[in-house]
């Protein structure tokens, strides 16, 4: 940006005035703020002794889960939008033709590297069928890197574990009968 860029807004520092120039008010201002906080109530939650209780699990961004549809199948349609949206490139999907007559495409494998993930929730935003969601589980740990790469079964298991406490954000639409458009088929 050049100094003559018309987009620059030149801001003048407000004059301090005689009181300000003594620096005393500023000096005391900084000092009182620190002292106030020094004695104020602490916000820390001592973790293993006390657990964080999420006020609204629906907006927390923790471990992912893959939702199931009403027949218990994985809801994901393998559209790759989550892995496209993912800024950390942690979602890996292998798509295949679905084995079910009413579905075209499904994820043959769906893995999330929970260590690479930055828990931004973009995948959840991108999903057109609300298949991937972030739960409020935050104390995720494992003994190896491999263990932290969650595959489809594990992600579905997270759903089974959390579905009662955290309902799906959008309940699935009721299945609609296929439209008859006539014509040869």
């Amino acid at each position: 940006m050049k100094p003559n860029d018309p987009d620059i807004r030149w801001v003048k520092e407000p004059p301090m005035g005689p009181t300000g120039k003594t620096y005393l008010s500023l000096f005391l201002g900084g000092f009182t703020t620190t002292l106030k906080h020094l004695v104020s109530k602490k916000k820390t939650i001592p973790f293993p002794d006390r657990h964080y209780e999420c006020p609204d699990p629906l907006i927390y961004r923790g471990v992912h889960r893959l939702n199931r549809d009403d027949q218990g199948r994985v809801k994901c349609v393998a559209c790759f939008l989550c892995s496209t949206a993912c800024p950390a490139y942690c979602i890996d999907i292998v798509a295949a033709e679905s084995p079910w007559p009413d579905r075209e495409k499904y994820p043959e494998s769906f893995t999330i590297d929970e260590l690479r993930c930055i828990y931004c929730g973009m995948c959840e935003e991108a999903c057109p069928v609300d298949a991937i969601e972030l739960t409020s589980l935050f104390d995720l740990s494992g003994k190896s890197r491999e263990e932290m790469i969650f595959d489809k079964e594990k992600l579905l298991a997270v759903y089974d574990m959390t579905k009662d406490a955290e309902p799906r954000r959008t309940a699935g639409r009721p299945p609609t009968p296929p439209r008859d458009t006539g014509g040869p088929s």
């Binding site: 349609v77 393998a78 559209c79 939008l81 075209e104 495409k105 057109p128 069928v129």
Partner: peptide, 9 residues
């Protein structure tokens, strides 16, 4: 509008 599963998308 099944763009998510359409290969042309």
């Amino acid at each position: 509008i099944d763009c998510p599963i359409c290969d042309k998308a």
